[in-house]
Computed example of a mutant assay.
Amino acid sequence: MINIWIFLLTMSSFAKSVALLEKELFIKDVSFSNLLCPLATIDLGLHSRATKCASACSQKPACRSFFYNKHDQLCKGAPGILTSTAGCALQSGTLYFHTTDITTTTSTTTTTTTVPSSQYGRPCTGAADCTITYGKCLRSTCECQAGYSYKSSTDSCVSNCGNYGSTYSEYLNVDLAVTHSGEYHFTSLARCHKYCSDTSSCRGVNYSPLFNGGMCRLKSRLDPTLFVSFNGINFYTRNCA
């Protein structure tokens, strides 16, 4: 009889955990990609996927967002949702996710606002979790396919933005085999992104820290059919404004 009660309690705890995870959905904020901010004070351990990091955050009532580094698999939670990059440090490979339920509290009332549902930027395990046009589940996150930019105003992946912004989507170990419109050496990834953002015709960059002290090549056009595998070089697509 004792064993049955232990089993029932275990199943009840599991069901609550699953319900909590289903309720506490997360979405990626590309504004904080490749950064780590001081607010991330909750140690959530090491996890092989962003979905597991999301689950760990969901189990802690104080965790409202988290940083996940896809290179070293480190997961750090935060008690709030970031709105500014002030004080944040550059950390390559880090992704930032926050809950879609944003709650603000005053002395007399509590108001909850639910962000409109979007698959982009959310943790995924396969194609069924990422069905937006030209979307793809990449490294456990719903992203645009290489060669397409994300347009938040229409929640879609597009071949031409019209107006381009200053955020980028990362594609590891691929080279866009089109003529580059500019090249810089001995530069950082952040500086490479700035070169592109400051150039109106730039649609993305190939960057490698392994060549010439940090090689940056600007690309003025995207072509999804011309991406080739190339170890040590990553491509960064410029997203829409």
Rank of each mutant, 00 (worst) to 15 (best):
F14W: 14
F14Y: 14
A15N: 10
A15C: 05
K16P: 00
K16F: 02
K16R: 00
K16N: 10
S17F: 02
S17H: 03
S17T: 10
S17N: 10
S17Q: 06
V18C: 00
L20R: 04
L20H: 02
L21E: 15
L21R: 04
L21S: 06
L21V: 12
E22H: 02
E22C: 02
K23G: 02
K23V: 03
E24V: 01
E24A: 00
L25N: 13
F26P: 05
I27F: 07
I27A: 13
K28H: 14
D29E: 07
V30E: 14
V30H: 05
S31N: 10
S31T: 11
F32G: 02
F32H: 04
F32I: 10
S33F: 01
S33C: 01
N34R: 04
N34V: 04
L36S: 15
P38Q: 12
L39S: 10
A40T: 04
A40N: 02
T41E: 11
I42F: 01
I42E: 08
I42L: 06
L44H: 01
G45F: 00
G45Y: 00
G45E: 14
L46N: 12
L46F: 08
L46Y: 12
L46P: 12
L46T: 13
S48F: 04
R49N: 08
K52L: 05
K52D: 13
K52T: 01
C53D: 08
S55Q: 11
C57G: 11
S58M: 03
K60F: 00
A62R: 03
R64C: 14
R64V: 13
S65P: 03
S65A: 09
S65R: 06
S65E: 06
F66L: 06
F67P: 04
F67L: 12
Y68E: 11
N69H: 03
K70H: 09
K70D: 11
H71F: 03
H71P: 13
D72Y: 05
Q73D: 11
Q73G: 03
Q73R: 06
Q73L: 08
Q73I: 08
K76Q: 15
K76A: 15
G77C: 03
A78V: 13
G80F: 00
G80M: 09
I81K: 02
I81S: 11
L82T: 12
T83Y: 10
S84T: 07
T85D: 05
T85Y: 01
T85A: 05
A86H: 09
G87N: 13
L90N: 09
Q91A: 15
S92V: 01
S92Q: 11
